[in-house]
Protein backbone atom coordinates (compact mmCIF):
# COMPACT_ATOMS: atom_id res chain seq x y z
CA UNK A 1 0.00 0.00 0.00
CA UNK A 2 0.94 3.61 -0.40
CA UNK A 3 2.60 3.02 -3.74
CA UNK A 4 1.33 4.64 -6.94
CA UNK A 5 -1.85 3.09 -8.32
CA UNK A 6 -1.21 0.69 -11.16
CA UNK A 7 -3.36 -0.81 -13.88
CA UNK A 8 -4.25 -3.82 -11.78
CA UNK A 9 -5.69 -1.79 -8.88
CA UNK A 10 -9.05 -3.21 -7.81
CA UNK A 11 -12.07 -1.36 -9.19
CA UNK A 12 -13.60 -0.91 -5.76
CA UNK A 13 -12.11 -1.61 -2.38
CA UNK A 14 -13.58 -1.18 1.11
CA UNK A 15 -10.95 -1.42 3.78
CA UNK A 16 -12.15 -1.99 7.38
CA UNK A 17 -15.04 0.40 6.78
CA UNK A 18 -17.16 1.46 9.77
CA UNK A 19 -20.12 3.82 9.37
CA UNK A 20 -22.25 5.30 12.15
CA UNK A 21 -24.97 7.94 12.37
CA UNK A 22 -24.90 9.94 15.60
CA UNK A 23 -23.05 7.21 17.49
CA UNK A 24 -25.34 4.46 16.16
CA UNK A 25 -23.36 2.00 14.06
CA UNK A 26 -24.86 0.88 10.75
CA UNK A 27 -21.85 -0.89 9.27
CA UNK A 28 -18.99 -2.48 11.07
CA UNK A 29 -15.54 -3.33 9.76
CA UNK A 30 -16.44 -4.13 6.17
CA UNK A 31 -13.49 -5.45 4.21
CA UNK A 32 -14.43 -6.06 0.59
CA UNK A 33 -12.53 -5.99 -2.68
CA UNK A 34 -14.10 -6.08 -6.13
CA UNK A 35 -11.23 -6.58 -8.55
CA UNK A 36 -12.87 -7.09 -11.94
CA UNK A 37 -15.83 -5.75 -13.90
CA UNK A 38 -18.94 -7.72 -13.01
CA UNK A 39 -22.57 -7.49 -11.93
CA UNK A 40 -22.21 -7.32 -8.17
CA UNK A 41 -25.17 -7.63 -5.81
CA UNK A 42 -25.21 -6.31 -2.25
CA UNK A 43 -27.79 -8.40 -0.43
CA UNK A 44 -29.16 -8.28 3.11
CA UNK A 45 -32.21 -7.63 5.29
CA UNK A 46 -33.86 -4.26 5.82
CA UNK A 47 -31.69 -1.91 7.84
CA UNK A 48 -28.59 -4.02 7.21
CA UNK A 49 -26.61 -1.01 6.02
CA UNK A 50 -26.63 -1.89 2.30
CA UNK A 51 -27.46 1.66 1.20
CA UNK A 52 -25.03 3.07 3.74
CA UNK A 53 -22.29 1.05 2.06
CA UNK A 54 -22.92 2.88 -1.24
CA UNK A 55 -23.38 6.24 0.47
CA UNK A 56 -20.14 5.83 2.40
CA UNK A 57 -18.35 4.99 -0.84
CA UNK A 58 -19.70 8.24 -2.36
CA UNK A 59 -18.87 10.37 0.67
CA UNK A 60 -22.56 11.00 1.46
CA UNK A 61 -22.33 9.71 5.02
CA UNK A 62 -19.39 10.13 7.37
CA UNK A 63 -16.93 7.27 7.64
CA UNK A 64 -15.98 6.53 11.26
CA UNK A 65 -13.03 4.35 10.38
CA UNK A 66 -11.48 2.64 7.38
CA UNK A 67 -11.34 3.76 3.78
CA UNK A 68 -12.82 3.32 0.30
CA UNK A 69 -10.81 3.38 -2.93
CA UNK A 70 -11.91 3.31 -6.53
CA UNK A 71 -9.33 2.04 -9.05
CA UNK A 72 -6.81 2.45 -6.25
CA UNK A 73 -7.62 6.16 -5.91
CA UNK A 74 -9.51 8.25 -3.36
CA UNK A 75 -13.04 9.36 -4.28
CA UNK A 76 -12.18 12.95 -5.15
CA UNK A 77 -9.93 11.87 -8.00
CA UNK A 78 -12.47 9.56 -9.62
CA UNK A 79 -15.89 11.19 -9.17
CA UNK A 80 -16.26 11.69 -12.92
CA UNK A 81 -15.87 7.95 -13.48
CA UNK A 82 -18.67 6.94 -11.10
CA UNK A 83 -22.38 6.79 -11.95
CA UNK A 84 -24.96 6.83 -9.17
CA UNK A 85 -28.61 5.85 -8.96
CA UNK A 86 -30.09 6.89 -5.59
CA UNK A 87 -33.26 5.35 -4.19
CA UNK A 88 -36.27 6.58 -6.10
CA UNK A 89 -38.10 7.79 -2.96
CA UNK A 90 -35.35 10.26 -2.08
CA UNK A 91 -36.57 12.89 -4.56
CA UNK A 92 -39.82 14.79 -5.02
CA UNK A 93 -41.35 13.52 -8.26
CA UNK A 94 -43.62 16.57 -8.35
CA UNK A 95 -40.55 18.71 -9.08
CA UNK A 96 -41.11 20.92 -12.17
CA UNK A 97 -38.76 19.15 -14.58
CA UNK A 98 -39.38 16.77 -17.45
CA UNK A 99 -37.69 13.49 -18.31
CA UNK A 100 -35.07 15.12 -20.55
CA UNK A 101 -34.16 17.67 -17.85
CA UNK A 102 -33.40 14.87 -15.38
CA UNK A 103 -31.31 12.83 -17.81
CA UNK A 104 -29.31 15.94 -18.72
CA UNK A 105 -28.32 16.25 -15.05
CA UNK A 106 -26.07 13.27 -15.76
CA UNK A 107 -23.97 15.49 -18.03
CA UNK A 108 -23.50 18.29 -15.45
CA UNK A 109 -20.43 16.69 -13.88
CA UNK A 110 -18.55 16.88 -17.20
CA UNK A 111 -19.86 20.37 -17.99
CA UNK A 112 -18.72 21.90 -14.70
CA UNK A 113 -19.81 25.26 -13.31
CA UNK A 114 -22.08 27.58 -15.30
CA UNK A 115 -21.83 25.77 -18.66
CA UNK A 116 -25.18 24.62 -20.04
CA UNK A 117 -25.80 21.36 -21.88
CA UNK A 118 -25.43 21.84 -25.61
CA UNK A 119 -26.79 20.05 -28.65
CA UNK A 120 -24.35 17.13 -28.30
CA UNK A 121 -25.32 16.64 -24.66
CA UNK A 122 -29.00 16.58 -25.63
CA UNK A 123 -28.36 14.04 -28.38
CA UNK A 124 -26.44 11.87 -25.96
CA UNK A 125 -29.16 12.17 -23.30
CA UNK A 126 -31.68 11.07 -25.93
CA UNK A 127 -29.51 8.02 -26.69
CA UNK A 128 -29.45 7.16 -22.99
CA UNK A 129 -33.25 7.46 -22.84
CA UNK A 130 -33.50 5.21 -25.86
CA UNK A 131 -31.40 2.55 -24.12
CA UNK A 132 -33.87 2.38 -21.25
CA UNK A 133 -36.85 2.42 -23.63
CA UNK A 134 -38.15 5.91 -22.81
CA UNK A 135 -37.19 7.88 -25.91
CA UNK A 136 -40.76 8.94 -26.63
CA UNK A 137 -41.34 10.28 -23.09
CA UNK A 138 -38.54 12.87 -23.14
CA UNK A 139 -40.93 15.81 -22.76
CA UNK A 140 -43.13 14.32 -20.06
CA UNK A 141 -43.27 15.77 -16.54
CA UNK A 142 -41.61 13.25 -14.21
CA UNK A 143 -44.60 13.05 -11.86
CA UNK A 144 -46.64 11.56 -14.68
CA UNK A 145 -44.47 8.45 -15.00
CA UNK A 146 -45.02 5.03 -13.44
CA UNK A 147 -42.61 3.87 -10.73
CA UNK A 148 -40.78 1.66 -13.21
CA UNK A 149 -40.46 4.51 -15.69
CA UNK A 150 -39.14 6.85 -12.98
CA UNK A 151 -36.52 4.28 -12.07
CA UNK A 152 -35.50 3.98 -15.70
CA UNK A 153 -35.15 7.78 -15.92
CA UNK A 154 -32.71 7.59 -13.02
CA UNK A 155 -30.83 4.82 -14.82
CA UNK A 156 -30.68 6.92 -17.99
CA UNK A 157 -29.30 9.81 -15.96
CA UNK A 158 -26.54 7.52 -14.65
CA UNK A 159 -25.82 6.37 -18.21
CA UNK A 160 -25.43 10.03 -19.18
CA UNK A 161 -22.62 10.23 -16.61
CA UNK A 162 -20.54 7.95 -18.93
CA UNK A 163 -19.08 6.15 -15.94
CA UNK A 164 -16.87 3.10 -15.50
CA UNK A 165 -18.30 2.16 -12.12
CA UNK A 166 -22.05 2.29 -11.48
CA UNK A 167 -23.56 2.22 -7.99
CA UNK A 168 -27.32 1.59 -7.85
CA UNK A 169 -29.41 1.75 -4.68
CA UNK A 170 -32.43 -0.59 -4.85
CA UNK A 171 -33.15 0.02 -8.55
CA UNK A 172 -35.68 -2.82 -8.60
CA UNK A 173 -37.74 -1.69 -5.58
CA UNK A 174 -41.39 -1.03 -6.39
CA UNK A 175 -40.77 -1.59 -10.09
CA UNK A 176 -42.97 -3.62 -12.46
CA UNK A 177 -41.57 -6.81 -13.99
CA UNK A 178 -41.19 -5.28 -17.46
CA UNK A 179 -39.12 -2.39 -16.10
CA UNK A 180 -37.08 -4.80 -13.97
CA UNK A 181 -36.16 -6.82 -17.05
CA UNK A 182 -35.33 -3.69 -19.01
CA UNK A 183 -33.16 -2.34 -16.19
CA UNK A 184 -31.40 -5.66 -15.81
CA UNK A 185 -30.73 -5.84 -19.57
CA UNK A 186 -29.08 -2.40 -19.50
CA UNK A 187 -26.96 -3.38 -16.48
CA UNK A 188 -25.84 -6.54 -18.27
CA UNK A 189 -24.86 -4.42 -21.30
CA UNK A 190 -22.80 -2.14 -19.06
CA UNK A 191 -21.02 -5.12 -17.57
CA UNK A 192 -20.37 -6.57 -21.03
CA UNK A 193 -18.86 -3.21 -21.96
CA UNK A 194 -16.31 -3.56 -19.15
CA UNK A 195 -18.01 -1.60 -16.37
CA UNK A 196 -18.43 -2.58 -12.76
CA UNK A 197 -22.08 -2.51 -11.71
CA UNK A 198 -22.82 -2.65 -7.97
CA UNK A 199 -26.49 -3.09 -7.11
CA UNK A 200 -28.10 -2.93 -3.68
CA UNK A 201 -30.85 -5.52 -3.88
CA UNK A 202 -33.39 -6.98 -1.50
CA UNK A 203 -34.94 -9.84 -3.47
CA UNK A 204 -33.12 -13.11 -2.84
CA UNK A 205 -34.97 -15.02 -5.56
CA UNK A 206 -33.78 -12.78 -8.38
CA UNK A 207 -30.35 -12.22 -6.85
CA UNK A 208 -29.22 -15.72 -7.69
CA UNK A 209 -30.02 -15.41 -11.39
CA UNK A 210 -28.88 -11.82 -11.94
CA UNK A 211 -25.56 -11.34 -10.21
CA UNK A 212 -22.15 -12.85 -10.96
CA UNK A 213 -20.92 -12.07 -7.49
CA UNK A 214 -22.67 -11.00 -4.30
CA UNK A 215 -21.92 -9.75 -0.83
CA UNK A 216 -24.19 -10.69 2.07
CA UNK A 217 -24.38 -7.79 4.49
CA UNK A 218 -25.95 -7.51 7.90
CA UNK A 219 -24.22 -4.57 9.56
CA UNK A 220 -21.04 -6.47 8.85
CA UNK A 221 -19.91 -8.45 5.85
CA UNK A 222 -21.19 -12.02 6.25
CA UNK A 223 -19.76 -13.42 3.04
CA UNK A 224 -18.69 -12.28 -0.44
CA UNK A 225 -17.72 -14.00 -3.67
CA UNK A 226 -19.24 -15.89 -6.60
CA UNK A 227 -23.01 -16.01 -6.20
CA UNK A 228 -23.39 -19.80 -6.04
CA UNK A 229 -20.67 -20.12 -3.42
CA UNK A 230 -22.05 -17.32 -1.22
CA UNK A 231 -25.82 -17.87 -1.26
CA UNK A 232 -25.70 -21.02 0.87
CA UNK A 233 -28.35 -21.83 3.48
CA UNK A 234 -25.77 -21.42 6.22
CA UNK A 235 -24.70 -17.93 5.04
CA UNK A 236 -28.31 -16.82 4.55
CA UNK A 237 -29.20 -17.98 8.05
CA UNK A 238 -26.32 -15.97 9.44
CA UNK A 239 -27.40 -12.91 7.43
CA UNK A 240 -31.10 -12.90 8.18
CA UNK A 241 -31.20 -14.27 11.73
CA UNK A 242 -29.84 -13.14 15.05
CA UNK A 243 -29.76 -9.45 14.14
CA UNK A 244 -30.38 -8.34 17.72
CA UNK A 245 -27.29 -10.03 19.12
CA UNK A 246 -25.05 -8.47 16.50
CA UNK A 247 -26.60 -5.07 17.11
CA UNK A 248 -25.89 -5.23 20.81
CA UNK A 249 -22.34 -6.32 20.24
CA UNK A 250 -21.64 -3.49 17.77
CA UNK A 251 -23.41 -0.96 19.95
CA UNK A 252 -21.17 -1.82 22.89
CA UNK A 253 -18.08 -1.65 20.72
CA UNK A 254 -18.94 1.80 19.32
CA UNK A 255 -19.79 3.10 22.79
CA UNK A 256 -16.41 1.87 24.02
CA UNK A 257 -14.72 3.56 21.04
CA UNK A 258 -16.42 6.86 21.88
CA UNK A 259 -14.94 6.86 25.38
CA UNK A 260 -11.30 6.32 24.45
CA UNK A 261 -9.62 9.50 23.11
Amino acid sequence: MGSAPHAAAPLLEFHDLTVAYGGKPVLWNVDLTIAEPCLFGVIGPNGAGKSSLLKAALGLVPIVAGSVRFLGLPLDQVRGRIGYVPQRETVDWDFPVNVMDVVLMGTYGRLGWFRRPGRQDRDFARECLDRVGLADLAGRQIGRLSGGQQQRVFLARALAQRAEIYLLDEPMAGVDVRSQEQIFRVLAELEAGGSLVVVVHHDLRTAAEWFDRVALVDRRLVAAGPTAAVLTPENLRRTYAGQLDVLDEIGRAVAARGRTP
Binding site: K55, L60, D92
Partner: peptide, 13 residues
Protein backbone atom coordinates in the same frame (compact mmCIF):
# COMPACT_ATOMS: atom_id res chain seq x y z
CA UNK B 1 -29.62 20.13 -9.48
CA UNK B 2 -29.22 20.47 -5.71
CA UNK B 3 -32.90 21.29 -5.20
CA UNK B 4 -34.06 18.23 -7.14
CA UNK B 5 -31.57 15.63 -5.91
CA UNK B 6 -29.04 16.76 -3.31
CA UNK B 7 -27.61 13.25 -2.84
CA UNK B 8 -26.91 12.87 -6.56
CA UNK B 9 -25.33 16.34 -6.62
CA UNK B 10 -23.14 15.58 -3.61
CA UNK B 11 -22.08 12.23 -5.09
CA UNK B 12 -20.98 14.13 -8.20
CA UNK B 13 -18.79 16.39 -6.06
Amino acid sequence: LVAFDAAFAAAGG
